[in-house]
Amino acid sequence: MNIQPSSYQAQMLASVKQALNISVLQKTMKQDAQSVDSVIKAMEQSVSPNLGQNIDIKL
């Protein structure tokens, strides 16, 4: 017994799949943004603003 979904059901199924894919993509992008923010904060903390401003030269 083979049941064929109607055209309307197929369209609804495609819409649900697309909505789920978009939801997963948004979640992934949000996690990526949080990861980038944490990397930027770590880089900012590792920078020493006083290093490299002065050069001591003795001749």
Rank of each mutant, 00 (worst) to 15 (best):
Q53G: 10
S15K: 11
L13I: 14
M12P: 01
Y8F: 11
Q4H: 06
Q4L: 09
S6N: 13
N21D: 05
Q53S: 12
S15I: 04
P5G: 05
I55A: 12
K41D: 12
Q18C: 02
N54Y: 10
A10D: 07
Q31E: 04
K41N: 13
S23L: 09
T28G: 00
I3C: 03
Y8W: 07
M29V: 05
I22A: 06
S48A: 10
I55E: 15
N21Q: 06
Q9K: 15
A33P: 03
S23Q: 14
I22E: 09
M1F: 10
L13T: 15
N21I: 01
V24Y: 00
V39Q: 11
Q34V: 03
E44K: 13
V24H: 00
Q9G: 11
N21R: 00
A33M: 07
A14M: 02
A14E: 05
Q45N: 13
K58M: 02
I57V: 12
N54V: 12
Q11M: 11
E44A: 07
D32M: 03
V47T: 05
T28N: 01
Q18A: 07
S15W: 05
Q53N: 14
M29W: 04
A14R: 06
P5V: 03
Q34A: 10
I3D: 06
Q34H: 05
D32R: 03
N50M: 10
M43D: 13
N50I: 11
S7C: 04
P49M: 00
K27Y: 09
Q34D: 12
N2L: 08
S15Q: 15
Q4S: 08
V47A: 03
A42Y: 02
S38F: 04
N50K: 10
M29C: 05
V36A: 12
A42W: 01
D37M: 08
A42V: 03
A10G: 07
K27P: 00
L59P: 12
D32S: 02
M43Q: 12
V16H: 06
T28A: 01
M12T: 14
A33I: 09
N2Q: 12
L25W: 09
S15F: 04
K30E: 14
Q53V: 12
I22R: 03
I3G: 05
S35W: 06
T28P: 00
Q31F: 01
L25Y: 10
K41Q: 11
D32H: 04
N54P: 06
N50D: 13
S35F: 06
N21L: 00
M12F: 08
L51M: 06
A19S: 14
N54G: 05
Q11D: 08
L20Y: 01
L59T: 15
I55M: 08
D32I: 03
S7N: 08
L20A: 03
V16S: 13
I3T: 12
K27F: 07
I57N: 11
S38E: 14
K30G: 05
V47C: 01
I40G: 02
Q34W: 02
K41C: 02
A19D: 09
P49V: 01
I55Y: 15
Y8M: 08
V24G: 00
V24P: 00
Q9R: 15
G52V: 02
V24I: 14
N54D: 13
S6F: 05
D56L: 07
V39L: 08
T28S: 01
S48I: 10
Y8L: 11
M12Q: 15
Q53F: 07
L13Q: 14
Q18M: 03
V36M: 07
Q31K: 01
Q26N: 13
V39F: 07
K41I: 08
V36F: 09
K58N: 02
I40W: 04
V47M: 02
